[in-house]
């Protein structure tokens, strides 16, 4: 009995030692040199592996940054400026701060505004509907509401509002990785500047049909009337193919365009309620559903200007 144990122990130890020696030499022979900074940079990255930077995973991003001479094309949307500064410190390079972005949904076509004319009964994916039809509504450009963007989001930053049938972005969770932007077959989602207090003004429509057709399909469609262009003091708005677009880099968030839009297709989000002037007309008030609306007060305007200054500084 004891000899069996002895032989077992001796032979197993011998096999183990030989294997260890072989492994050691093999490891030496095939050792790959890796820049230790790659590990350091990867350490500080958020490890979300979301691909928002355009590289396959955080390690790929770290490798590319270590190799590159100039860090300006690199940006980790999840970690933001803080992470990028840290990475730049490790690598001994400089990095410019970039404005943080957030995803916005450029469609307000809830069933209330955009009548459902058909019932879709196929595979429950936006990409299939968009490949075949204009969807359930008369607007072929708008949201199909089947939630491809929700499925693709790694950060639980989008959910479907059951009432409106539209996706809603949770600004705090959104890292602007861009996955939903790529996924959306109708290119409704856009990454826009995350202004102070998450304030945003944008045209919530992507319909490029002529005004009349667009309006017929959806009450809150942009009809390309150019009223907003005329009122914009900063030349931030352009109209192309009967569709207005507000350039986030030029927009100063003055909210004038919101008031003049006849179809309420320009949305203002996270702004404080406006002080309603006494003589505010009824028509203006009934226009806005989401936020109480009135003509811009003087004080408000100053506040806005201050915001802008703060932001620039």
């Amino acid at each position: 009995m004891s000899t069996t144990i002895l032989f077992t122990v001796i032979s197993l130890s011998a096999i183990g030692s030989i294997a260890a020696i072989i492994l050691y030499f093999v490891a030496q022979k095939f050792k790959v040199y890796e820049d230790p900074r790659i590990d350091q940079v990867e350490e500080i990255l958020p490890a979300a592996n979301c691909g928002g930077c355009g590289y396959p995973g955080c390690r790929g991003f770290a490798e590319a940054m270590v190799k590159a001479d100039d860090l300006s094309p690199f940006y980790c949307p999840v970690g933001g400026n803080e992470t990028m500064t840290q990475a730049a410190e490790i690598l001994g390079k400089a990095v410019e701060a970039k404005d943080p972005l957030v995803a916005v949904i450029r469609c307000s076509g809830s069933p209330e505004h955009r009548k459902r004319v058909n019932t879709y009964d196929g595979a429950s994916t936006c990409v299939i509907v968009s490949g075949l039809y204009s969807g359930e509504t008369g607007c072929q450009y708008g949201c199909h509401g089947l939630g491809d963007c929700v499925d693709v989001c790694d950060f639980e930053a989008i959910y479907m509002d059951e009432e409106t049938g539209l996706p809603v972005v949770i600004d705090d969770n959104c890292t602007a990785c861009g996955a939903c932007v790529k996924e959306c077959p109708n290119d409704i989602i856009e990454l826009r500047k995350k202004n102070k207090k998450d304030r945003k003004i944008f045209v919530s429509c992507v319909n490029i049909d002529k005004g009349g057709i667009a309006k017929k399909a959806c009450e809150v469609a942009c009809i390309g009337c150019k009223a907003c262009v005329k009122v914009c003091a900063y030349d931030a708005i352009t109209v192309e193919n009967f569709l207005a677009y507000i350039d986030p880099n030029l927009c100063k968030l003055c909210r004038k365009c919101v008031d003049v839009c006849p179809t309420n297709s320009i949305l203002e989000i996270n702004f404080p309620p406006r002080k309603v002037k006494v003589e505010a007309t009824e028509t203006v008030e009934t226009k806005k559903v989401e936020t109480p609306v009135g003509p811009t007060g003087e004080n408000e305007k100053k506040e806005n200007d201050n915001n802008i200054i703060n932001q620039e500084g």
């Binding site: 196929g122 595979a123 994916t125 990409v127 299939i128 490949g131």
Partner: peptide, 12 residues
């Protein structure tokens, strides 16, 4: 299963 729906998508 909507087999052809997805196959058509993959095909395109």
């Amino acid at each position: 299963l909507p087999l052809l729906d997805y196959i058509r998508l993959g095909k395109s």
